[in-house]
């Protein structure tokens, strides 16, 4: 049976066009192509964080979520898969990139398959994805694909980058096809920490059968 997936690309490149965005686009294109070969559809939506920069800093220092940021939150909340791509600055993912993921609710991305990618001006930053980004996304409980992607200038002329992109894209396709994230959502969602109104404003269930609710209605604390 044909399945339709939505993939959201988050790119933190600054120039236009940026190599960070180009890397993300290639991952997305290969994801579409590999899924298509397996009879499935992928719709891609791209968010360039550059355009959300002021709303991201506003969200960092105040409770306000601007309309463009909210659109990205809504898209990520509904996404079946994610491609996240950042430039490396000062031996770390860009502040814009980490700030964006820091202002998201902790439970927005639970179990979602994600490809992590980075670009840098030198190959000496090659481990930023594995040593820094993976822990951020572990905190967010994403299902990060096994293959990390990294491109320094010399990689753009090296066919092995394409091979690694294919590998990561295929991993993403298989994880989306598996329905893992959806099943977590359907069967195990309550076992993760949530707050009222979290998950981008969608987590609105209220459980009246809890110790706290009994305490709220005159019962005793346990």
């Amino acid at each position: 049976m044909k399945q339709s997936f939505s993939v959201v690309v988050v790119a933190a490149g600054i120039s236009d066009p940026s190599s960070t965005r180009m890397l993300a686009d290639r991952i997305a294109q290969r994801t579409v192509a590999l899924a298509d070969r397996r009879g499935n559809d992928v719709a891609v939506q791209v968010f360039d964080l550059r355009e959300l920069a002021t709303e991201i800093t506003t969200a960092l220092v105040s409770p306000l979520v601007g309309p463009k940021l909210q659109q990205a939150v809504d898209a990520l909340g509904a996404a079946d898969g994610i491609v996240a791509s950042t430039p490396v600055y000062k031996a770390a993912a860009s502040g814009l990139f980490t700030s964006f993921f820091q202002v998201l609710d902790n439970d927005l991305l639970i179990a979602k398959p994600i490809v992590l990618a980075a670009t840098a001006g030198t190959a000496r930053h090659a481990l930023v994805v594995d040593e820094q980004l993976r822990s951020l996304f572990a905190y967010l409980r994403t299902t990060t694909v096994p293959t990390s992607l990294f491109a320094a200038p010399q990689d753009w002329s090296d066919p092995s980058l394409n091979k690694r992109i294919d590998r990561a894209a295929f991993e993403l396709v298989l994880l989306m096809e598996s329905g893992f994230a959806r099943q977590i959502r359907d069967e195990s969602w309550h076992s993760y920490q949530h707050e009222y109104g979290s998950a981008g404003g969608t987590e609105l269930s209220i459980d009246l059968d809890t110790d706290l609710m009994r305490l709220a209605t005159g019962g005793s604390a346990k």
Partner: peptide, 16 residues
């Protein structure tokens, strides 16, 4: 305090 140095007053008026 709380929201200063963040959103513009116009944005804040629009959404709060």
């Amino acid at each position: 305090p709380v929201y200063g140095h963040g959103p513009s007053m116009e944005d804040f008026m629009r959404s709060t």
